[in-house]
Amino acid sequence: MRHAFSVRIGPVGFRVGSAWPQPIAAMRRLYAGYPPPRDGIADFTVRLEPTRPWRRWLRPSAMVRGDFTLPDAAPLPLAQGLLAAEMGMNLQMALGARRWLLLHASCVERDGRALLMSGHSGAGKSTLSALLGERGWRLLGDEFALLDPASGVIHPFPRPVSLKNEAIAVMAAEVAADRLGPLIPGTPKGDIRHLRPAADALARMDEPATPAMLLFPRFGASADVRPMGAIETFVRLTQASTNYVVLGEAGFAALTGLVRGVPAMAIDYPDTAAAIDLVERLWAETAR
């Protein structure tokens, strides 16, 4: 590829190639301070290519290709090339990761213990983890939690946080401007802006944490907490995992171990301030 960028995020090395310079330049800025892949060798490759050769110049749109691809994938306009690269990296993890049970969850850490937050897109888990990451917690990741089947620990995967719509202003008020990527308007998910995690999240990206609490947040009329049993938690997490089936027995053992060892709750919250209060209170009361 004409243009390329390599980066390591926790235990995973990526190489992103692009037919155009713009997405690579944006990645270099966004990923300032991240290390290169170990021994220079990437685990996964993502390529941003024109759908047809002439589409490199004419109404350029980037098709995401890589080691693992999805049928029906649609190209994105070149102006959204950074998002295309991020989606491509997510897809490689979702389809290709074998060393960990991947949970679609955000994760923060304090005192070596991890708080996992899983839920549907739009439930606010990304915003919540980003805010906690600025308020005394270490961000382990906003998209995927990497559960180690052998040890039960969570490996950090501190990608830039994908802020959507209202969350952009919330976080812009919270962090230095140089940690925010470009505003990408009009994407399939609305406006998107990436946030580079705080310096300690990058510096300690090789330091795993032991799961201590599982939350399933969602917006609600008022703050509410409902303890969740091990079975319901297990079933919900199988639905939140991209590779539960692929991992087979190791996935079953990892997930049953997690839900038996860690308290889980569904929480409703009316706004992010209430959510932060709720999380802190539950953590103080519950996390062992």
Partner: peptide
């Protein structure tokens, strides 16, 4: 008996742009 059928498509779909 409830058989768990993980929704790979759900999670993959949430990280990708796709079309029909």
């Amino acid at each position: 008996v409830v058989t768990i059928r993980p929704a790979l498509a759900a999670t993959v779909g949430s990280v990708m742009n796709c079309e029909v």
